[in-house]
């Protein structure tokens, strides 16, 4: 994933209207496989204790 992320980031370098952090956020998601994307999303929910109904 790291290689692909670097490739995607390079392509997004010239995009206007996005901060470097925003470019990284999009690049990380776009470079990932669907399973990795889902894991990123799950990790976010878990880190905020929102993943399961019992937690919510």
């Amino acid at each position: 994933m790291e290689k692909k992320l670097a490739r995607v980031l390079k392509k997004l370098r010239r995009v206007r209207g996005l901060s470097e952090e925003e470019k990284y956020l999009f690049a990380r998601s776009l470079a990932a496989t669907p399973d990795e994307r889902w894991r990123l999303h799950e990790n976010f929910l878990r880190s905020h204790d929102l993943y399961t109904r019992s937690a919510r």
Partner: peptide, 9 residues
């Protein structure tokens, strides 16, 4: 999300 949108649901 599965298509690359950095969001949560």
């Amino acid at each position: 999300i599965l298509q690359g949108v950095p969001a949560t649901t």
